[in-house]
Write a protein that binds this DNA or RNA. Structure first.
Length: 166
DNA sequence: ATTTACAATATGA
DNA sequence: TCATATTGTAAAT
């Protein structure tokens, strides 16, 4: 066993199951939904830095699941993905709790009003659902659209935030 | 390198 | 309602 990639995996227990956060040496690299069964491999050899980030992530995640403001986040390692995608994720993080946006709005916000389709793609490639609130992004006229990991989650999250769906 | 599909939207018929 | 053009990415060929 060698450690080529320095990814630290830590689990987060929530009322909705056990999420798994992954940290690189740059910050939060991904967040996974509960996988159903199988406990997440909690890394006991986590570097102190990762533990600090993990605490922020845990708090932010629970707050978001409870329908509160997401709050403070650790640095996100969005080094994967293109500049375009980073712009999209950044724009999405500005959406306040209980508020919904649309793919068109995001596209416009990053200066490419016609790239709505591309925005959808970037959302699908988003490694950090919930904290980057892709669930708050609806299609035009507030249709639900899709969601990676299941529409079920999207509806649940929106219901908790009491987002206005009409 | 070209085609196709995506979590879209607007426009034209 | 359906066909099409558009814009960025990824996957398939």
């Amino acid at each position: 066993m060698k450690a080529k990639s320095e990814l630290t995996r830590l689990s987060i227990a929530t009322t909705d199951g056990e999420f798994v956060a992954g940290y690189s040496d740059k910050g939060l690299a991904f967040l996974n939904f509960p996988n159903g069964k199988r406990r997440a491999p909690s890394d006991e050899a986590a570097p102190p830095q990762a533990r600090r980030w993990h605490k922020l992530t845990t708090t932010a995640l629970k707050q978001t699941l409870a329908g509160e403001a997401t709050g403070e986040l650790p640095p996100l390692d969005d080094s994967a993905g293109t500049d375009f995608q980073r712009s999209v994720w950044r724009a999405m993080r500005k959406i306040p709790s209980g508020q919904t946006s649309s793919y068109g709005e995001i596209a416009k916000a990053i200066g490419k009003p016609k790239a709505v389709r591309a925005v959808g793609g970037a959302c699908g490639a988003n490694p950090i659902p919930v904290l980057v609130p892709c669930h708050r992004v609806l299609a035009a006229h507030q249709k639900i659209g899709g969601f990676s990991g299941g529409l079920d989650w999207k509806r649940k999250l929106l219901a908790r935030e009491r987002a206005m769906l009409f």
